[in-house]
Design a protein around this nucleic acid. Structure first.
Length: 205
DNA sequence: AAGAGGATGAACT
DNA sequence: GTTCATCCTCTTG
């Protein structure tokens, strides 16, 4: 069965907040170490380069790490957090615009066994793929995959549109997680979750 | 050259 | 609610 990939148009829009909402309901598919695994995106956060203090590329900061965020939308930005967790983001916007959407949680739909094995869990529960670090571990995403295309059928990470539509009324928004030091930007309601999903991560204090 | 701290998760109490 | 694992990136000197 073949599913359409999202187009460059979708990723290269300048409205990263809208893209973060539009990514809900899309399917994140990985093919890593010979295993295909997939799930439906149920939680995202928008990060907007120049004016968003919580973004690594705030004020157009350009370092080795942030460089990939300036590429044209449709590639992966994967970085290591707290020395342990591999966090997966979708780079968006036209080339030169450092926008990204952090994918925080999926509803696992394909090859739960592999995810369970990677997470070393004996039973399936939301913790399997809720939270950006956990989700990446379950899907096998690592920093080595920084910069790969999400629109190429040969890519180890891609995002597919299988026709699921999440209505605006089904989306909950709130402040982003873990960015309280970002001043007023910390209050921007740029975290989006699918209402009622049990597969989303918890707020932390 | 060195040190601080981070878009977290898990295992505690 | 609290602690801490663990290491890369960035800033400063």
């Amino acid at each position: 069965m073949n599913h359409p990939f999202l187009t460059p148009d979708f990723y290269q829009s300048e409205d990263v907040v809208q893209i973060a909402k539009d990514l809900l309901g899309k399917y994140l598919v990985t093919e890593i170490d010979g295993h295909v695994a997939a799930g439906k995106i149920v939680e995202t956060e928008a990060y907007r380069g120049p004016d968003d203090k919580a973004c690594h590329a705030w004020n157009n900061r350009l370092t080795d790490r942030t460089r990939v965020m300036y590429e044209a939308g449709g590639v992966a930005y994967v970085y290591l957090c707290y020395g342990i967790h591999h966090l997966f983001n979708v780079v968006t916007g036209p080339q030169g615009m450092a926008h990204a959407v952090l994918i925080r949680a999926i509803e696992p739909t394909h090859n739960l066994e592999v995810m369970q094995f990677r997470r070393d869990m004996t039973v399936i529960k939301p913790r399997l793929t809720a939270g950006p670090g956990a989700m990446s571990q379950a899907l096998g995403i690592r920093t080595a995959l920084n910069g790969v295309s999400l629109m190429d059928s040969a890519s180890p990470i891609r995002i597919e549109d299988r026709g699921d539509r999440i209505a605006e009324s089904e989306i909950l928004s709130g402040p982003r997680v873990g960015v309280e030091s970002a001043g007023e930007c910390a209050l921007w309601p740029w975290r989006f979750v699918v209402k009622g999903s049990k597969w989303v991560s918890a707020f932390r204090k």
